[in-house]
Simulated assay, not measured.
Amino acid sequence: MKPRSAMPQIKNLWIIHVLGWLLFMVLPLTIMSRESDVYAQFKLLQSGSLWLFFLIYFAIFYLNIFVLIPGLFLKQQYILYSIIFVAGLSLIFYTQPFEKLIFQKFHESEQIGRTGREERFRLPPPEMRMDTDRPPPGEIRPENPLRVDFVSLVLFVVVWVVGMATKISEQWRLSEKKVILSEADKAQAELSFFKAQINPHFLFNTLNNIYSLAITKSDHTAPSILKLSKMMRYITEEATQDFVPLHDEITCLESYIDLQKLRLNDKTRVNFKIDGEIKNKQIAPLILMTFVENAFKYGVSNRFENEIDIRLESTATSVYFFCRNEIFEANEAGERQGIGIANTRKRLDFLYPDRYDLKISKEEKTFEVSLTVH
């Protein structure tokens, strides 16, 4: 799965690079095309000086993203990295690649292209020329000032900044991927912790109940052992996946509820209703178990009449779960919003990002949970 998902990203990255360099190639020609001559531009495209200009900036860009940024900037050697940037900018300032490799060549080509199409003025014989370049006696003409190649400087800064943006965004994507993988490992660890938490407590109580059934030679002994076996197999094997068939999750809940009923008396009534089509649907394992377990842990009384309502509805696009139970002061320990529900929220955030709606309401004597996953 990973190689197939990586190939389109690599392909798209190369396409972006190629399009970027094509835009870079068009930019200098656009700057020089005020006095456009198609023939001159075509001749310039065939000249080695133009491709040497591109090669210089090509080398600057990839030297920056493959050597300087990983070796200096990402290792927080900002001073040395800045010194190299200033040195490169100074070198471009003095070498003037655009001025010397393209601008002058371009106008030379334009001058050649005008040959035969423009009338040339003949210079007078040497003896009739006026030496206009010679300054008058006693006058000192200043030397020609150094021309600044702004195009080369701007392109250098653009190439450098784009290289930094490209590499930093790549590092950000890698960091984000590591965070996602870390969250996945964390969610898996929390699921394992939850299973380790539910197994001993539930297992010991259920075995004690089954032992009582065996002592009394109840007909429910063998079916209870079979349900416990299937449930523990589901928790330890099938529930290791991110998603499981909804039918298997419901079977686990039914087994759990039936085993819990072994310890209940006539004061407690449990209603478990399923509506809709559950075939070919999937759900995150043990997401619902947390709320059902809490309902039996905090909503059961041996002295007062009590009722637990559990309802599950499956539609074409969503699964709706509802659980309601009464609250008894003897069982209130402030743990209802404890680690079980907190871990369930985190797993929902990871497995159903922006695709679930969890509502938990606690009134004076009633606790309700409604969960919809899409």
Rank of each mutant, 00 (worst) to 15 (best):
R345Y: 09
V161K: 10
E119M: 11
Q9T: 13
M231R: 08
I341D: 01
I16M: 15
Q46G: 10
P8W: 02
V369G: 08
T95D: 08
P70S: 07
E313H: 12
E326T: 06
L191T: 03
L50Q: 00
M289R: 07
I210K: 04
N12S: 12
V270T: 08
T236M: 10
F42T: 15
I210L: 04
E305L: 08
L264H: 00
K261N: 13
P200I: 04
S175H: 08
F204P: 15
K43G: 12
V270R: 00
A222K: 15
H107C: 04
W160D: 09
G88R: 01
L288A: 03
L351F: 09
Y298H: 05
K359P: 07
G338D: 01
Q77C: 15
F321R: 01
I287L: 10
K100R: 14
S36I: 15
S109D: 15
K177D: 13
A184S: 14
A87N: 03
T344R: 01
L80R: 13
G116I: 01
Y39C: 11
R345G: 06
V148R: 08
S82C: 12
R263V: 04
V300D: 00
G276K: 05
I250T: 06
L19R: 05
Q77H: 15
L63D: 14
E254R: 10
P8L: 02
I168S: 03
N208K: 06
E176Y: 08
F58K: 03
F61V: 04
L207K: 09
K362M: 09
R269W: 08
A214K: 10
N271E: 10
V158N: 04
E335G: 12
V161R: 10
V154A: 10
N64E: 09
R120I: 15
K186S: 15
F328T: 00
